[in-house]
Amino acid sequence: MSTNKPTDRPRPLAAVDLETTGLDPARHDAWEIAIVRRGTDAAVSEYLWQKRPSEQALLEADPEALEISGYYQRMAVPKDAEALNMITGDSLTLGELFKQIHELLDTAILVGSNVGFDADFLRRMLGAAPWHYRPVCVATLAAGFLYAAEPGEMPGEGLPFSTGHVSRHMGVRQPSPDDRHTALPDARWAFDLYTTVLSSPSYRERYRVNLVDGAE
């Protein structure tokens, strides 16, 4: 049963990416958080923070995760601070950081590459899930669009769908090798892939027909 209503107001869109100390939200911690947010007025804003992981999370950190994300080279939070706004340079308490993130994600459609991973860490970090209950994985969305447009013609990988693979077929520029696995470039990448799929004329036409037919 669809829970969408024709009178629902437009929701903000929030493309997110996190860099973490490992893959398990029960043991590991997010240390870099990026949001590319499109408001209901269509204005797009970017946000980037770093926070110091808990001592326990660092003790249990996956060394490979820290190396891939460049934790030791890129951690910029002063030793006497808990978190840092990487765009304004302002130091924050964890409470201030969590409040800002919560407000930006409130009612938003959460999108990202393998967004369930980011959502699990965000939910544990915030103690809540203020975003819309149906997050969107951009790799799966784009793969579905490509297969529908050219059934059986998209070469290469099957499941699980690779964001890089579908990006190449959608013509979306990927972050440079130096920027991969840094939160803001990856959040921008997810935002660009999502908006490219939804800006496709053939996608808009199918979506319009679905709305007319009452399909979810």
Rank of each mutant, 00 (worst) to 15 (best):
Q100E: 13
A148W: 01
H169K: 09
A149T: 10
T196A: 15
V16R: 03
L122E: 01
A30Y: 01
V212G: 06
L104A: 04
D80Y: 05
V166H: 08
L122Q: 04
M125T: 12
T88Q: 11
A143Y: 09
A187G: 09
L97A: 04
V166C: 11
G152A: 05
T21V: 00
G156H: 00
A57Y: 05
L126F: 14
L146P: 00
A190I: 10
D186Q: 13
F161W: 12
A143F: 03
Q50D: 10
I68A: 11
N210W: 13
D80Q: 13
A57T: 00
R38W: 11
R208D: 08
M154I: 09
S69G: 12
L48V: 07
H132P: 13
L48G: 06
G127A: 02
R204H: 07
H28P: 15
H28E: 00
S167E: 13
G144M: 03
P151K: 00
S54A: 05
S54W: 04
P175Y: 07
T3D: 10
D62V: 02
L66E: 12
R9Q: 15
S202Q: 05
R27I: 01
A26D: 01
L48C: 04
Q174Y: 03
G164L: 15
L13H: 06
D24Y: 06
D41A: 13
Q56F: 13
S69Y: 11
R52S: 12
D186F: 09
P10A: 04
Q174S: 11
I87K: 13
D17V: 14
V16K: 03
G156Q: 02
V115F: 01
A187P: 11
V77F: 06
A108M: 06
P151R: 02
A108Y: 01
N114H: 05
L198R: 00
A187K: 02
D186N: 11
P53L: 09
E216K: 14
W189M: 14
A148M: 03
D17F: 12
P135N: 09
Q50N: 13
A215F: 14
Q56S: 14
H165N: 09
L104T: 07
E216C: 10
G116I: 05
L48Y: 12
P12L: 05
S200C: 10
E46N: 05
E64K: 15
R9S: 14
T163A: 15
A57N: 00
T21Y: 00
G112H: 01
D192P: 02
D118T: 03
F117L: 01
A61L: 02
S199W: 05
G112R: 03
R27C: 00
Y72L: 15
H169Y: 15
V36W: 08
F161A: 07
R168F: 08
F161L: 10
S113W: 08
S45Y: 07
H169L: 14
A34D: 04
Q50S: 10
G39F: 12
P25R: 01
K5Q: 12
E216A: 14
T140H: 06
L126I: 04
P12T: 06
